[in-house]
Computed example of a mutant assay.
Amino acid sequence: MTDEHRSGCPINLSLEVFGDKWSLLILRDMIFGAQRHFRDLQKGSQEGIASNILASRLKHLVELGMLTKRPDPAHKQKAIYSLTEASIQLVPVMAALGSWGLRWQPASEELSIRAQLLEEGGPELWNRFMAELRDEHLGIPAEPSADGKLVRERLQEAYLAVLAERGKSLPSKA
């Protein structure tokens, strides 16, 4: 046990990595929203993360090995953030958090549909999603699904269907 950590408890150590709400929301937006650039993460956050907080959390997540950062070959001033295996392994945790929030918190219908589908799909769907994330972020090829759709696409289609059913449009990202 070093002085760097409050204790050697695995829950404490996990919370030291992603226990603040912003770090977990950044990882959520990268996993489920395919957001990989600073500006996309800032503008795409429904919770409204400030640029200084985003910069600080991204730097911290890179230092902890939860993300990698590399220059964007398409734009000199941009960087591309990628999930590491440690972050990809959070998919079941995110599914469990979503399932709990769906059951015990006043979640909106449109933002609940993804959690519902992840809960219904269970470990088989989570494993498929993690394989797709490994392909996208780590370059480890995933077998295509039978219908050719990615898990993230299915989740987004369900979200858009709920919005359409309720007569709503996509939230503004201004």
Results as ranks from 00 to 15, higher is better:
Lys149Pro: 02
Ser145Ala: 15
Tyr159Pro: 01
Ser23Cys: 05
Thr68Ile: 03
Ser112Ala: 13
Met1Trp: 11
Leu15Gln: 13
Gln116Asp: 08
Ser99Pro: 02
Glu120Trp: 01
Arg152Lys: 10
Ser99Leu: 08
Asp29Glu: 13
Leu15Thr: 12
Gln35His: 09
Lys78Thr: 03
Lys69Pro: 04
Leu13His: 10
Ile113Cys: 03
Met130Phe: 06
Leu102Glu: 11
Glu136Gly: 01
Leu41Ala: 01
Ile11His: 10
Leu155His: 07
Leu25Trp: 00
Pro144Phe: 11
Arg6Cys: 05
Ile49Pro: 00
Gln105Trp: 06
Leu155Phe: 04
Pro73Asp: 09
Glu157Asn: 11
Pro92Glu: 13
Pro123Gly: 09
Glu16His: 15
Ala174Thr: 06
Arg39Ile: 04
Ser99Ala: 13
Lys168Cys: 02
Cys9His: 14
His60Trp: 07
Ser56Lys: 07
Arg70Glu: 14
Tyr81His: 14
Leu150Ala: 15
Phe38Cys: 01
Gly167Arg: 01
Asp40Met: 10
Ser14Thr: 13
His137Cys: 15
Ala34Asn: 13
Leu13Phe: 04
Phe32Leu: 05
Trp104Glu: 15
Leu90Met: 10
Lys168His: 09
Leu163Phe: 02
Gly98Ser: 07
Glu165Ala: 13
Asp40Val: 02
Gly122Ile: 08
Leu61Phe: 08
His137Ile: 12
Ala55Ser: 12
Leu90Val: 04
Arg103Pro: 00
Glu136Val: 12
Ala131Gln: 12
Leu125Pro: 02
Val93Pro: 00
Lys59Arg: 15
Gly48Val: 00
Ile53Gly: 00
Glu63Arg: 11
Leu117Ala: 03
Asn127Pro: 00
Ser56Trp: 06
Leu118Ser: 03
Pro92Trp: 11
Ala146Gln: 15
Ser14Phe: 15
Thr68Pro: 03
Leu125Lys: 05
Glu157Ala: 14
Ile88Gly: 03
Glu153Gly: 07
Gly121Thr: 05
Lys78Arg: 11
